[in-house]
């Protein structure tokens, strides 16, 4: 059984460690915030200028001056701090953010990522994605293994315009957990009931699957 988006987020949450500063992108990555283990201190960074992002406000308490990078109304938590956009990307560039989780349209077996532009379609812009992927110490991509046409999103080389090169460390999809190594993708875990052969068939890039591949524990 392929993982749901919630289960992908749940699996990524297992990568969190106490004391981590984490930047979560829009989409599946946002869901990771729902699975931070109880008692673990994880501080969420929002690149529009906030460390210590809290949950959405109760109805009637929305504050137009307090939003996240997805422009959603949010709240602060004890210990939150505001700063300007240059400092926000300064802490990202300086490697202070421990983990970045973001979505992607394509990832190559060298760790290149494409997630901002489809030629011929309206281009909205890269926002902070290029800064994040160029500087984050650890980048995990959360995405579906294939696109809606059933084509692999894990490729020998990205076909879409790149967001960053040789930066992705790990990919969690609905089918597998894959690490990016010098030799290509390395299969670490598979979704419950999904065979290594199916994952190989749906991975266009070079995939190494050595030994027994355990099932994903969410």
């Amino acid at each position: 059984m392929a993982l749901t988006k919630e289960q992908i987020a749940q699996r990524i949450a297992r990568e969190l460690q106490d004391g981590f500063y984490v930047n979560l992108g829009i989409g599946i990555p946002t869901l990771v915030a729902n699975y931070i283990p109880a008692g673990m201190n994880v501080v969420l960074q929002s690149e529009n200028g906030l460390l210590g992002m809290g949950p959405f406000p109760p109805e009637g308490e929305e504050d137009p001056d307090l939003i996240n990078a997805g422009k959603q109304t949010i709240t602060t938590i004890p210990g939150s701090v505001f700063f300007d956009s240059a400092m926000s990307f300064g802490m990202i560039r300086a490697g202070k953010v421990d983990l970045t989780v973001l979505g992607a349209m394509e990832v190559s077996d060298q760790g290149d990522i494409a997630n901002w532009k489809i030629p011929g379609k309206m281009v909205k812009g890269m926002g902070g994605a290029m800064d994040l992927v160029a500087s984050a110490r650890n980048i995990i991509v959360a995405m579906m293994h294939t696109n809606p046409k059933g084509e692999s999103k894990l490729l020998p080389a990205c076909t879409l315009p790149l967001t960053g090169v040789r930066c992705v460390k790990k990919i969690v999809t609905d089918l597998a957990v894959v690490e990016v190594t010098e030799q290509g993708f390395r299969l670490l875990e598979r979704a419950p009931g999904v065979t290594v052969e199916e994952i190989k068939a749906k991975t266009a890039g070079k995939l190494i699957a050595a030994g027994e591949i355990p099932e994903i524990q969410c």
């Binding site: 690149e47 956009s85 990307f89 309206m122 281009v123 902070g128 290029m130 800064d131």
Partner: peptide, 20 residues
């Protein structure tokens, strides 16, 4: 943008902030 009336230069957000 599509009709060519408007010119757009897209740059990374951190680059925009840092150039300021």
């Amino acid at each position: 943008l599509l009709s060519g009336e408007l010119e757009v230069e897209l740059i990374p957000q951190g680059t925009l902030a840092t150039r300021c």
